[in-house]
Nucleic acid binder design. Structure first.
Length: 522
RNA sequence: GGGCCGAUAGCUCAGCUGGUAGAGCACCGCCCUUUUAAGGCGGGUGUCCUGGGUUCGAAUCCCAGUCGGCUCACCA
């Protein structure tokens, strides 16, 4: 079965019948765009990842590709998100690139979230061209297009009106300008065109600061086209042939349809192939995820628990039109397992091939195994190497340390109840409440551990042997052994369950736990 | 009000252009001398949402309905 990225690549190539420009191969531009109106979350990642995979597929078919991502940071700051100081309401109406960084570490609000996101992309080996829309608008690059749009303002109005449910009016039509003008005095978009003296000269009034100003559209540096017009204009400007977008844009009468019509009728450009994508949910963030709390997951958060190629493979596996939940509960075991399985196949699964990051060779020590060893080795890589050696799979720490770190992050962030940490000090109360026979078990165990450097087999044998003592020959031993294990888990971790004890005692340096088992009876 | 998507095992889902219902997890059983959160092997537990239709044959195609989710219409 053909992978979705290859199908899309074929569609793009098939439509691209135009002859190559003289002197150069035809470049297929795939575009993505995100408005950094707050933290850029994993859902937005789908925009980038879609062109990334499709771009790879096109390249493999031998066509040159340009991948670009627009930071739509000249969009207005519309509302203050939950994690931002409330007094940021004073910046509403300014471009996102002219709002200060609430964390005070980047040149602007937009820059902060852009940087955060770009860092994650880099970690995933995604390299694309970034376009800063503020810079492009302010450079005057789009002046001609703005002029063009304004000269066709009534036609644009008519197109927009066609898709609106509200009735328009001739006054509205007469006064319509397809521009957003940021006030020269206060920087906000609370402006209205008040008069036009020529083809390109306009006067405006700012309702916020009451400033009256004039602009010449030929040279203006503070004017932006509104979304649907902007989108169409940029398709033409960058010769975009493919662009994904959230499914909200895809609906009948939605922005893609409207922009397409503007592109055709106003800018005489054939709209790109559009790939709507479904949104991404989160699984395992019970209670943490809610609109009001403003908690959302950034790619950086996801990368704390997912190795980059594993995260990529999750996106690669799902066609864009499929919604899926990013797994953060213990289903993460399965995600890693499926990755490892697919990754070891020959020929390689397509989604894995697309997710590979040059220079990295993802290893396959099971995530689940690492997660359960987190509690055993207590952060001690050498101890884990020893365990693996004794288990007959002598992995070195370079092989597992990255994934081990992800497992530790996952345990502490999303499964703290499963996380095992050795107790700080001996639990005398618990010990004293035990029966004399149980106390004897612990003492025997301590004597065994304190006097002998044991192998895994010896330790395993011993922990099963101890509860056998003093039992009548026909006793069902299993309940006793279970009790014994439970007691040890309590003394070591304060929990009902724990790792295999033979493994634990044989591998972990004794000084880390021996004092927790040292009790004197009588 | 318009549009889109989904409904299959306890859970998450796969089943593409019709041909005897599948996978992983969970669960149960067994093995590694008895075994716990290492490991290995075996086992499928089902009104394929409902009702019609097309067909030799429908989870699959068509129509209608039920339930759930999303989205548009103001702005980006």
């Amino acid at each position: 079965m053909t992978h979705w990225a290859d199908k899309t690549a074929e569609r793009i190539l098939k439509l691209q019948t135009a002859p190559s420009p003289p002197g150069g191969a035809l470049q297929l531009t795939c575009a993505s765009g995100i408005s950094p109106s707050g933290p850029v979350h994993v859902g937005n990642l789908r925009d980038i990842v879609t062109i990334w995979f499709v771009g790879k597929a096109i390249k493999e078919k031998g066509a040159p590709v340009r991948l670009l991502h627009s930071w739509d940071n000249y969009d207005r700051f519309r509302k203050v998100p939950a994690n931002t100081p409330a007094n940021f309401t004073e910046f509403i109406g300014r471009p996102l690139s002219k709002v200060p960084d609430p964390f005070n570490c980047c040149p602007s609000y937009a820059a902060h979230y852009e940087k955060e996101f770009e860092t994650s992309l880099l970690e995933m080996g995604i390299e694309i061209e970034f376009l800063n829309q503020t810079k492009l608008y302010e450079s005057g690059l789009y002046c001609d297009a703005i002029l063009e749009a304004v000269s066709k303002r009534h036609a644009i109005y008519d197109i927009l009106q066609k898709f609106r449910t509200q009735a328009g009016s001739s006054e509205e039509r007469d006064g319509y300008y397809p521009i957003t003008l940021y006030c020269e005095r206060c920087g906000k978009d609370t402006t209205q065109v008040s008069a036009t003296s020529s083809e390109s000269h306009i006067a405006y009034h700012c309702t916020e600061c009451q400033h009256d100003g004039e602009q010449d559209l030929k040279h203006a540096r503070n004017i932006k086209l509104p979304w649907k017009v902007d989108w169409a204009m940029r398709w033409r400007h960058e010769k975009v042939v493919f662009e994904p977008g959230g499914k909200d844009h895809a609906t009948a009468g939605g922005s893609f349809e409207v922009s397409s019509e503007i592109a055709k009728d106003i800018f005489h450009y054939r709209p790109p192939i559009f790939q709507p994508y479904e949104f991404i949910g989160l699984k395992g963030l019970t209670g943490k995820m809610s609109g009001s709390s403003g908690v959302l997951l950034t790619p950086g958060d996801a990368l704390k628990v997912y190795q980059p190629e594993v995260l990529l493979s999750v996106f690669a596996k799902m066609p864009p039109n499929k919604a899926f939940d990013l797994v953060l509960d213990d289903g993460i075991y399965r995600v890693y397992d499926e990755f490892d399985r697919a990754n070891s196949k020959t020929p390689l699964e397509r989604e894995i091939a697309l997710s590979r990051i040059p220079g990295r060779s993802p290893h396959a020590v099971a995530f689940k195994q690492l997660a359960s060893f987190c509690g055993i080795v207590q952060g001690n890589d050498a101890a884990l190497e020893l365990i693996f050696t004794r288990m007959g799979t002598p992995y070195k720490s370079e092989l597992f340390e990255e994934r081990l770190q992800k497992a530790e992050n996952w345990l502490s962030e999303y499964a703290p109840e499963q996380r095992l940490v050795l107790r700080e000090k001996r639990d005398d109360d618990y010990f004293n409440a035990l029966t004399p026979a149980q106390k004897n078990w612990i003492v025997s165990l301590y004597d065994f551990l304190a006097t002998k450097q044991c192998t895994l087999d010896e330790a395993t044998h011993e922990v099963y042997e101890i509860p056998k003592k003093d039992q009548p020959p026909d006793t069902d031993l299993i309940p006793h052994q279970r009790d014994f294990f439970k007691i040890i888990y309590h003394l070591l971790f304060g929990k009902e369950k724990g790792p295999r004890l033979g493994t634990f005692f044989a591998a972990v340096p004794k000084e880390q736990y021996l004092s927790l088992l040292e009790f004197r009876t009588g």
